[in-house]
Structures are given as C-alpha cells and as structure tokens.
C-alpha cells in the first residue's frame, strides 16, 4: 500500500500561501499537479463558465424595484442568445426593435438627469447578487441631491455601450450602467459601473468612467455608491465623463 504523501511531493513553502491568493505550492506527482488541486481548479472554471451563461432574475428585480417605487423597463439587445452575444459585441451594444418601441411609449417631453441601466454583461450572477444592494444605496443619495431618475432599464444580453442608446432615448444627461464583469477563477460575481455624460450612440469608451470589482469581498457597496455619486456630481459640474474627469480628480480613491 502506498500512502498519499509517498506519491505526492508537497512543497516546503506551503506556509507562504497565507500571503497570496495565487495558486502557489501546489505540490506535484511526477511533474503534474495533484488530483485535489486539479479538480479544485476545474471547479473554479466550471463556476466561471456557469456565471457567463446565467440569466438575470427578472422576478427578483421586479420585486425590488417595486419596493423602491421605481418605474422600470425590461429590454433586450439585438443578440438573440448568449452564443451570439459573445461573438458579436456590436449586437450587444444595440437595443432590439421591440425594446426601442417600449422606450418610445414613454413621454418624450420628459427629460431626466440620470438614466440607470442594469445589464447581465458577462456575469448575471454579479447582477443578481449585487445590483439591487447597490441601487438601494444609490437611490436615496440621488433623490437627496434631487436628481431626476429615468425609468430603470433592465437589459438582457447588453454591453456597456447600450447605455448610450437608452440614455439618449430617455432624454437623460447621464447614463450609468451596472453590468456583470468577466468572471475570473477567484471571483465570478464582480459588478462594474460605467458612467457616461451626454449619452449617444457612437460614444467610445474613453468618454466613460468605470468603477470595477464591486462585491462584498472587493469594493464594498458603500464605497462603490460613494464613488458613483462623486463621479456623477463631478460629471454634472464639468459636463463630461472620461479620461479627463479621472485624471483631474484623485479625490475618488478608497
């Protein structure tokens, strides 16, 4: 009978694992990684894959947005499914005709300060877990400053730039989008927030600001909400978002 520790060569520096999240000191059998490490890696990848293909929990969002007395619209991009969404970012940046029709039913004489969008992006998991807690913090802050808020746009298979179209169609000075970031092996549920002043189709990413890695273990809801409000206030003052805004305002730090 062979014992496990005869087959696997453990590393003498395992104690260093506590200083880093990197997959160090995995040990080896021959030159290969031990079974348990191999399977834990595969599990992390499986979770990340599932996160990409997860769907927005519309029922839960519906319930939560009602609670906050926020009107909302359920919209979709031109991507017909996740497979197409992944290969055609251009489709994910455009609303489908049905969604445009839904927005056009809104009163076009009303304009707003802020258009808030929620989109699955590359992790509906992130949106399902973290979008509402963040919205719950943001809305009272926005209402206190008396920003008018457009109907919340919940968008399936959307990319960041789709917030240009919604913000434009809803006559909003700024459009912000809460979107699931690309899942990693260590976190599959990072939420990102992108802010664009003067949203219109064709804006490029240099015209936006971004807050990344929002989740309890990363950037907390409280700090993310403060940063978002600080960026909105600054953008409203300067009438712009993008690289310039970030460079001149180092106050937005942790």
């Amino acid at each position: 009978m062979h014992k496990e520790n005869e087959i696997i060569k453990h590393d003498s520096w395992e104690v260093l694992k506590k200083h880093t999240a990197a997959r160090i000191a995995l040990g080896k059998t021959g030159v290969s990684i031990p079974s348990n490490q191999n399977l834990s890696f595969k599990l992390a990848h499986a979770l990340a894959r599932d996160a990409v293909y997860d769907l927005i929990d519309k029922k839960e969002l519906h319930h939560n947005l009602d609670e906050l007395q926020l009107p909302f619209l359920f919209l979709q991009s031109c991507a017909i499914d996740k497979k197409q969404y992944l290969q055609r970012p251009d489709f994910g940046r455009k609303l489908n005709q049905q969604s445009i029709d839904i927005i056009n039913k809104e009163d076009s004489n009303i304009s707003y300060d802020i258009c808030i969008n929620i989109a699955d992006g590359l992790s509906a998991d992130a949106v399902n877990k973290h979008a509402m807690p963040l919205i719950h913090l943001l809305i009272p802050m926005l209402r206190e400053i008396k920003y008018s808020i457009a109907p919340i746009c919940v968008i399936e298979q959307g990319r960041v730039a789709i917030s240009d179209e919604t913000g434009y169609l809803l006559n909003s000075k700024m459009s912000i989008i809460l979107i699931g970031e690309r899942p990693g092996l260590s976190a599959t549920d990072s939420l990102g927030v992108y802010l664009t002043y003067n949203p219109k189709v064709g804006n490029n990413d240099a015209l936006r600001n971004c807050i990344s890695n929002i989740r309890p273990e990363g950037l907390t809801y409280e700090i993310a909400a403060q940063k978002t409000i600080a960026l909105i206030n600054e953008a409203m003052r300067l009438k712009m978002t993008g690289v310039c805004l970030k460079d001149n305002n180092n106050f937005i730090t942790n």
Partner: peptide, 9 residues
Amino acid sequence: PGADDIMLN
C-alpha cells in the same frame, strides 16, 4: 502559479 493569473483574471 497554478495557471491562474489572479490580476488579469
């Protein structure tokens, strides 16, 4: 380390 880049994800 372990094929997993924890910065670039």
